[in-house]
């Protein structure tokens, strides 16, 4: 398995990362090396092995259904690059 030009474009688009054309070749090479390297895992026999989702083996803690207004609109919007009347503002999204 190797990552080609179009795969990089697809993955970059999924990850929403702009890749400049002058970065592309190096990146493809690097990604391929990494993928080739992690491909070593294919040699490990994992038949009958359950995937380990987490090392944490205590039960899921649950919260009571109590509503708390911990943060005001002012705090929530405090770091926003662009806002208007208490809303976050982004370029028009077409549905």
């Amino acid at each position: 398995m190797s990552i080609d030009n179009s795969t990089v474009k697809k993955v970059a688009s999924l990850a929403r990362i702009e890749i400049k054309s002058d970065e592309e070749d190096t990146l493809i090479k690097e990604l391929n090396n990494i993928i080739l390297w992690v491909d070593e895992l294919q040699k490990v026999n994992t038949d009958k092995v359950d995937p380990m989702l987490s090392v944490f083996n205590e039960s899921m803690p649950m919260r009571q259904d109590i509503a708390k207004s911990n943060y005001s609109n002012k705090l929530i919007m405090k770091n926003s690059p662009k806002s208007n009347s208490g809303f976050f503002v982004v370029p028009k999204v077409v549905e």
């Binding site: 911990n70 005001s72 609109n73 208490g86 809303f87």
Partner: peptide, 21 residues
């Protein structure tokens, strides 16, 4: 009363971004 993974209230029709954790 509160959200699935946060304590923020779920009241309908509140001011924008006022019920956000």
């Amino acid at each position: 009363r509160s959200k699935l993974f946060s304590e923020a209230p779920t009241n309908w029709g509140a001011d924008p971004n006022s019920q956000v954790d």
